[in-house]
Amino acid sequence: MDPNQVFLQLLSATAQGDRQAFANLYQRSAGKLYAVSLQMLRRRDLAEEAVQEAFVRIWHNAGEYQQEKGEVLTWMISIVRYRALDMLRATKSRRETDVDELEEAIHHQTPEQELYEQRNRVRIDRCMDRLEDSQRSAIELAYFRGLTHMEVCARMELPLGTIKTWIRRGLERLKRCLES
């Protein structure tokens, strides 16, 4: 069965209050959502918090998902991404980010965690290299550097519609590559 169909069924059941479907949805997607969050926030504690808050929103807003606007996983990733962006902005305004803290957090990884993250980075890098330059640049700015779509527009000096199209098409190609 198509992975999006599975996610769609689980999300629909979640919208009806099915806790088992929500647990299954969590099990199937939490790793990917955490990877997106960690890539943006660069701190495990903040990444975990962003994912936890995103799943609370997913539980409460499952009925608001609109299939014609994109795939379920893409919708869920956007929830995590916006939460991570909010956290980045809050961190910048409070000046809580300390380079020493970040370095310490990175150095306390277990060998298994380092290997897992390294393998994921290699797979993502390999798939990112297959994207068109425009798509890759837009995705890197939005997802890896945490810029909003409007900030990406300003940086690339292109209209919002173009940026959104490049990101959407690039994410679709990236998803297909990572699933193969």
Score class of each variant (00 low, 15 high):
M1I: 07
P3T: 04
N4W: 08
N4D: 04
N4M: 00
Q5S: 09
V6Q: 06
V6A: 00
F7I: 01
L10T: 02
S12W: 00
A15P: 04
Q16N: 10
R19F: 03
A23Y: 06
N24T: 13
N24Y: 07
L25S: 04
Y26S: 03
A30V: 12
A30D: 04
G31S: 12
K32M: 10
L33P: 00
Y34L: 12
S37F: 05
M40R: 07
M40H: 03
R42N: 09
R42P: 03
R43T: 06
R44K: 14
R44D: 05
R44Y: 01
E48H: 08
E49A: 12
V51M: 01
F55P: 00
V56W: 00
R57V: 03
I58C: 04
H60W: 07
N61A: 05
G63W: 04
G63I: 04
Y65A: 02
Q66K: 01
E68P: 01
E68V: 11
K69Q: 08
K69I: 04
E71M: 02
L73I: 11
T74D: 07
W75H: 01
M76T: 04
I79T: 11
R81L: 06
L88A: 09
R95S: 15
E96W: 14
E96P: 09
E101Q: 13
H107K: 14
H108F: 14
H108V: 10
Q109D: 09
P111L: 13
P111S: 12
E112H: 11
Q113L: 15
L115V: 14
R121G: 14
R121C: 12
V122Q: 15
R123T: 09
C127H: 11
C127R: 13
D129K: 15
R130T: 14
D133L: 13
S134R: 13
Q135C: 13
R136K: 15
R136T: 08
I139T: 02
L141C: 05
Y143F: 15
Y143S: 09
R145Y: 08
R145N: 02
E151M: 12
R155Q: 12
M156R: 11
M156K: 08
M156G: 00
L158D: 01
L158N: 06
P159N: 13
L160M: 14
L160V: 04
T162P: 06
I163E: 04
K164G: 07
K164P: 09
I167F: 09
R168Y: 14
R168L: 11
R169W: 05
G170D: 01
E172I: 11
E172K: 11
K175M: 10
R176Y: 07
R176T: 06
C177G: 02
L178N: 07
L178Q: 06
E179D: 03
S180R: 14
